[in-house]
Design a protein around this nucleic acid. Structure first.
Lengths: 181, 181, 181, 181
DNA sequence: CATGAATGAGTGTTCATTCAT
DNA sequence: AATGAATGAACACTCATTCAT
């Protein structure tokens, strides 16, 4: 049913996503839609949730994969993972981030919060690689936003003439530069 | 009239922004609203446009102010300007970026494109301060997204316990670290 | 629901026929109106259609009834049938023909086209009753318009002091005069 | 200004005829439109009126031209005049008779009433040409509707494959057949 | 007289949601 | 549980008309 939403979203945009249309495309009755979702907003929330889980899985998977790597390698892995997560279905990601309404209070379930958790873990277990004096909260703030913006941008907001590979390369470089500063 | 929209937006969210309500709050008739805007979307577009102009003015002003400064000082100025622009009315900025629908084809008038122009100028006139081999497009890509995300984040998405000043400080540090890498 | 339209039409004229009013008078919700008709025009179209079918039925019934009659008797029957069809609800007929907008392309479903078909049939099976040299298309043209105008006129546009019976009588006489000329 | 209405009518249909549009096309202000017409309906009424006068002039002119002709020649002249009147601007005539709302009480100013007057005159001064027993009102009724329908039909509702000339010929024949019956 | 900005009642239409079957 | 006809509040938008300038 969420797939039906995605289909409509891609085909005709958010305003075409009506509950009746969703039911039709999903091949169920409108009544059944309301069996699973209390209201329309819940459908969008579930869609965001699902997307978030996917990204979360990828990011956390990378974290595990690189448990034994250096901080630099891990960071590179994380950036690449985020880009890969976005690149899987850029159109959907774009739609989700610009057209589909976000729950106002989504706060705690945000991609950003999730990412912050990942970075906290990554840094915590590698404190020794960093200059000791640096404040963790500050770093998490910068890293989170940098990585999210750069990977999102690399996939969806590249300036003309910049390849995805080049953007990725540069994003990694920027993150590492910050870490080593 | 755009102020009426802002008022409603802040008070009751986007879905409360109906053309009739806008007219009422603005103290004009609904007919007059349609004298100035062809349709509802145009109202939102105009609101975005206005906000964009404001940011543009601030950023470009900083560019001029720091015409004689070092690249580092300019960058610091730019980041601070962006944060100041967002901080002027964070709630509005938040609303504008998450709730109010964006014109699909806004492309060329995007804040990001505008920022890119500013950075291009900033770097072009200071080529000597940089390691010559670096690719301009790559740098613009990274700088644009970094600055936008970090200043937006500093104002609206700070983790708990991180002050705005600290976030700003760290954002500047990150940008400079990248430039000097 | 079409009956509701007729009621409003008779009571307050076309401009009072609003979709919401139709729903109200029909005792259903506006939503239900749109379940049966794609838009307002379709309501009018359906009304015309229904009226047309009624006339068609009457005319074609007469055709069958008089299958064995002489051409004169058939013609008399046809004229009388048309008058009877109009006379059933003259007010409605008047409204339908003057106030209710016609579909622009109704062409092929016109009362006139339908009548032409009836006359073609009537004449075809009685070719021998006519002077052979006469051109069929010409005759159909004249007969169709004569009968329609005269029956419509007899019911709705009689000059003062002329009874319906007299008008009918004279209409028949005119049609027969033409046929025998 | 009525010409502006005609222009809009032909270009985009009745529903495009708004008072503001009329003003714009006529090159005057909307205020000025209301200087000459009390309301919108009056504009349509005036348009019908003008058209009616034109037809009236043509018909009455023929009446005078044929003051000395035989009844047959006069009738032929009248039919031809009506056809000519319609043929001058068939599109406008069509629009006027199907799309543009008629004043409900137009009664007395109807084309039909006007035609009836013409025929009354024509027959009155030629009583001797007719079988004495015939009732004048009946004849006027038939003649009026026949001539109007046939000339209108000849120009605007001809069946495919029937030329205007042939239709006119046949219309005249029908009228004369009735007169001589 | 002419203007045209302003008005606002009223329109057609949509769509989230319900609930009897 | 599943259905889908029915609902009706609410919306974007139009346009005949007015009136201060």
């Amino acid at each position: 049913m969420l797939d039906a939403v995605v289909k409509i979203l891609k085909g005709d945009g958010v305003q075409a996503v009506t509950t009746n249309r969703v039911a039709e495309v999903a091949g169920v009755s409108i009544g059944s839609v309301y069996q699973y979702f209390p209201d329309k907003r819940a459908i969008f929330t579930a869609l965001h949730e699902r997307h978030l889980q996917e990204i979360g899985r990828i990011v956390e998977g990378k974290l595990v994969d690189h448990a034994a790597s250096s901080l630099d390698d891990l960071m590179r892995g994380l950036v690449e993972a985020m880009i890969q997560a976005h690149a899987a279905d850029p159109e959907l990601h774009e739609l989700l981030s610009t057209e589909v309404p976000h729950r106002a209070d989504m706060g705690a379930r945000d991609i950003e919060v999730r990412l912050r958790g990942a970075f906290r873990l990554a840094l915590a277990s590698r404190a020794s690689d960093l200059k000791p004096a640096r404040d963790l909260d500050r770093m998490l703030f910068v890293l989170t936003h940098m990585v999210e913006a750069l990977s999102h941008g690399a996939v969806l907001r590249r300036p003309p003439r910049l390849s995805l590979a080049a953007a990725r390369e540069e994003a990694v470089r920027a993150v590492l530069a910050y870490l080593h500063a």
